[in-house]
Design a protein around this nucleic acid. Structure first.
Lengths: 230, 230
DNA sequence: GTCTATATACGGATAGAC
DNA sequence: GTCTATCCGTATATAGAC
C-alpha cells in the first residue's frame, strides 16, 4: 500500500544493511509465533533491540515489512530446495530426487529459518495484496514439485491410482505440518527425515505392491515391538 | 480469564440457545479465516447478524468465546472419528481402521466444520490459558491414533524403520494440511480421501516391499523421461 | 540513525435505554 | 435480549530533538 522508506535496500552488508536484516529477522520470528494480526511493531522492535519508530527508517510501513518477510521466506525455501536438487548427480533417479527435496524442505523449515515457518503459518491469514511476490515464488516452487512428480510418473514409478497433484500436496502437507509438532528434544531431525522419506518412498512407488498374506502362512511371527531408539 | 456471562449454557435448543449457537458458529467461521489476533467481535457479530455488545449476553468475554470454539472443534473431531471407528465391524483389520479414521478426519475437516479448521489453524497462536480444555481433548485424540498405530504394529504390519509416533504425526499432517489447499472445484472429496488412503496404506504397511528392478527385465516399457523445463 | 513525545484510529468492554 | 453511546487501553505512524 505505502511506498518504501528512504532506507537502504541493497544486499551489501553495511552497518545500515545489517540493522535492516536484524529487523527483518525479528519480524519473521514474531510473525511465525504470533500470526499476522498479532504481530506488533513493538514486539519486533524488542526482538531487534531498538525502538519501534526506528523501523520506519528501513521500512515504509508494518505491511511493507511483513510483505517482505513472506516473500523472503517463500524465496529462501525454493532456492534451498532447488540448489539441493541441482547439486545431485545427473543420473539420480526420480524417487531419490524426491527424497532429497523432502530432506531439504524439512531442513530449511525446521532448522534454518523462521522465515519458512512464518510463511507456512500465515499464508492463509494475510491480505491478498501483501502476497503478490510470495505467490509468484510459490508458483515456481509448485512447478519444481510438479516436475519431480512428473519425472517419477514418466519413469513408470508413480503407483497407479495416485493423482500426481493431490499426492504432491499430501506429501508437502506432511512435511509442512512437522513445524507444528517437531520437538528436537523428542525426535532427532534425522529421525523425522528418515520416517518422512520412508513413508513417501513406499507410499508413492509403483514398485511398492502390497503382498497379500492370503492364508495365514505363519511365516511371520506376530512381533511385540520394542521402542525404537533414534 | 473472565467468568462466564449469565447467559444460557445448556444444549437444549430454545430460541436463546440457538442464538448462542449462531454466535459460536460465526466465531468459528471468522477464527478459521482471520486467525486469533485478527478475530474481531464486530466481524463475528456481522456473521451472526447482530450487534457486537449482544455477544456479551451469551459469553463473558472475547476470550471465553474463542476458548469455547477451540474446545468444541477439538471435541467434535475426536467424537466424529471415534464414532466412525466404533461403527466398524469388530474384526476390521488395523490398516482398514486407520483408513477409516483418515476418511472421517478429512470429512469433518473439509466438509462439516469451521470448528475443525479453526482448531487446525490457530492452535499455534492462541495463548496457553485458553487451551486447557482443547489440550485435554487433543490428548484423548492422540491416544486414539496411538492405539490405531499400536494395533497395526502388534499385528506385525507396521514397516520396520518407521517410528509409530513420528509416522502418525506425519500422516495427521498430510490430512490436516488439506484444509489449506483443497478446492472442491478441482478435486472431489473422494479423490482426496482415496489418494490419502493409498499413500498411507502403502507408506505404512510392512507388506509393502519395494520390488527391486535389478536388471531391466523388460516387463515395464522404459518410458522416456523428459527434461525439466525451467 | 535512533530516540521521546504525541496525534489518531480502532477494538473490547460497559452503561443504560427500550 | 438487543440496541446506541461511550469509555479506555493499545497500536500504527509521524514530528521533531539529539
Amino acid at each position: 500500500m505505502s511506498r518504501k522508506a528512504g532506507g537502504p535496500t541493497s544486499e551489501e552488508s553495511s552497518k545500515s544493511a545489517r540493522t535492516r536484516e536484524r529487523i527483518l529477522d525479528a519480524a519473521a520470528h514474531v510473525l511465525s509465533r504470533k500470526g499476522y494480526a498479532g504481530t506488533r511493531l513493538g514486539d519486533i522492535a524488542d526482538q531487534a533491540q531498538l525502538q519501534a519508530p526506528a523501523i520506519y527508517y528501513y521500512f515504509g510501513s508494518r505491511e511493507d515489512l511483513i510483505e517482505e518477510v513472506m516473500w523472503t521466506g517463500a524465496r529462501r525455501v525454493r532456492e534451498h530446495v532447488s540448489e539441493t536438487l541441482d547439486a545431485l548427480p545427473a543420473d539420480t533417479d526420480p524417487m531419490d530426487r524426491i527424497c532429497a527435496a523432502i530432506e531439504a524442505h524439512l531442513h530449511i523449515e525446521l532448522e534454518l529459518s523462521d522465515f519458512a515457518t512464518a510463511v507456512i503459518r500465515n499464508s492463509g491469514q494475510i491480505p491478498e495484496h501483501l502476497r503478490t511476490r510470495q505467490l509468484a515464488e510459490e508458483g515456481e516452487y509448485g512447478k519444481l514439485w510438479r516436475t519431480l512428480f512428473r519425472d517419477l510418473d514418466n519413469a513408470g514409478d508413480l503407483r497407479p491410482g495416485l493423482d500426481p497433484r493431490v499426492a504432491h500436496l499430501l506429501v508437502l502437507g506432511a512435511i509442512n505440518w512437522a513445524a507444528e509438532w517437531w520437538n528436537p528434544k523428542r525426535d532427532t531431525f534425522d529421525a523425522v527425515v528418515r520416517n518422512a522419506q520412508s513413508l513417501v518412498r513406499h507410499g508413492l512407488s509403483a514398485r511398492s505392491q502390497l503382498i497379500e498374506p492370503d492364508e495365514q502362512t505363519g511365516s511371520r511371527p506376530p512381533r511385540k515391538r520394542t521402542r525404537r531408539t533414534p
